[in-house]
Amino acid sequence: MKLEARGVSVTVHDRKLVENASLQVSGGELVGLIGPNGAGKSTLLRAILGIRAISAGRILLDGGDFLAMPPLKRANAVAFLPQERRVEWRLPAYDIVMLGRYPHQSGFGGPAPEDRAAVDRALDAVDGHGLVDQPVAVLSGGERTRILLARALAAESPLLLVDEPIAALDPYHQLHVMEILRERAHTGAGILAVIHDLTLVARFMDRLVLMNAGRIIADGSPADVLNAEQLASVYRISGSPPQRIS
């Protein structure tokens, strides 16, 4: 499955948050969307999902108009982990993960056996079985991120968009989450992730898309994108690019 943004612009009050952006993500690849704060990364993700209205361009799923599809169909194809980590009410973690199965459920008769199986697999992936009975509100930041990630994984959708999944996590948990994403990509899912940590990006991503001031200015392998001139112009830092280790 292939999700594609073609010439997408998002304008709010005459201010262009995203301008003429084009990118694509296909099954089996882990793509990093990077760029400084305010570059328009999160806005672009939301625009692709149809949460934000676009003023120009198209979103295509395997060549078809993605935004014209009914909401549940879209949700079946593309799962999303937003930056917002707040969970209302004291819902137990298991119920939160089960919400990932929302697009698959009819709403009658409670979760089916395949829903429970998918939730179990997602909990396996994040090593979250020990947390299922606790309300998400009392979990630590790392635990909460893992549970919410499991929620996104439980949909078992062919495509997954994640917004800053490792923000505010310690190095151990950052690695853990990155490994989960890579694992998922290597089993066939297409993942587009907004991530700030350039070292981890270089180490885990198959491809990088670099944004600045609402525009996509580079799209390619980590080695190509993370060169000295790009970093200097975009991030206003200088030095040698991080090396891909694995």
Binding site: A75, F80, P82, E84, L99, P103
Partner: peptide, 11 residues
């Protein structure tokens, strides 16, 4: 309860 954005992405 996951917030409006997550809910919208769930369909």
């Amino acid at each position: 309860s996951l917030g409006e954005e997550a809910a919208a992405s769930l369909g």
